[in-house]
């Protein structure tokens, strides 16, 4: 029994097509029903199981697909068909910083985002010191996020997500930002959690650093699960797919 199970999941997402024609022409087209908003298929009949303690890399060239997969795993998105079941709480680590308000202080933002991730205020009060310490924002606690040092938003986002009591983390690559030092700290935190038996779902477009810490790679192309193999192999597939269009 896996921690997260995808069975025959299909999903389409709305995307804005490039504007066709300008001014009146464009408006007429929209009016005629040729809307610029179209549904693009993202996943097609995808089934896989993530087992406890595993670290799985999602290798795909499409960022939208990777983010959607993570959101599906964390139940912040409902599949069109098929089902996603999970036995534990999944923390989606995607673009958390977007929810923070620049006019709120670091402390307020911590409570806000923590609450959105499902933590209770008491729990947050208890964890606040460790969150702030990890984010290296001790001296800025009661300052507006606007005036905080650059990168504070991302560091804080990461630290809060890590503080959630969960066994499954779904990490989007784009969240891994900040200075080199902080990034290394993040990955070592991930390693510690992994040793404690946490499960990870990592989205990547084929970057090398995932090689060292994921033990399974899922390669997707055009929304179809092509290969469920080891990470090096999945990365090799991704490289090949990238090379092909160039060779034509």
């Amino acid at each position: 029994m896996g921690v997260i199970e995808f069975s025959h999941v299909s999903l389409t997402m709305p995307r804005t097509k490039r504007r066709q024609g300008s001014g009146r022409k464009h408006r007429l087209r929209r009016f005629a029903g040729e809307t610029s908003r179209t549904m693009v298929p993202v996943l097609q009949d995808v089934s896989f199981t993530v087992n406890k303690g595993e670290s799985v890399a999602i290798v795909s060239a499409k960022p939208l697909m990777r983010t959607s997969l993570i959101r599906l795993a964390a139940a912040t998105l409902i599949p069109d068909s098929g089902s996603v079941t999970r036995t534990e709480r999944v923390v989606p680590m995607i673009a958390i910083g977007r929810a923070m308000g620049p006019t709120f202080t670091i402390r307020q933002n911590t409570y806000l985002v923590g609450a959105l991730l499902g933590m209770s205020p008491e729990e947050l009060t208890e964890k606040l010191p460790s969150i702030i310490e990890f984010a290296e924002l001790g001296s800025h606690l009661d300052r507006h996020l606007r005036g905080a040092p650059p990168g504070a938003r991302q560091r804080l986002a990461w630290s809060i997500a890590m503080a959630v009591d969960a066994d499954v983390y779904a990490i989007d690559q784009t969240l891994v930002v900040g200075g080199l030092e902080f990034r290394q700290k993040c990955w070592s935190a991930v390693d510690t959690l992994r040793e404690n038996g946490a499960t990870f779902l990592v989205s990547s477009d084929g970057a090398k650093q995932y090689r060292r810490f994921c033990d399974r790679g899922l390669y997707f192309d055009q929304g179809v699960l092509i290969a469920d193999t080891t990470v090096p192999q999945a990365l090799a597939l991704a490289r090949e797919a990238r090379r092909e269009p160039l060779g034509e």
Partner: peptide, 10 residues
Amino acid sequence: ARGELAFSAL
């Protein structure tokens, strides 16, 4: 609420 809905399971 776009950004908030993306990651919050509430």
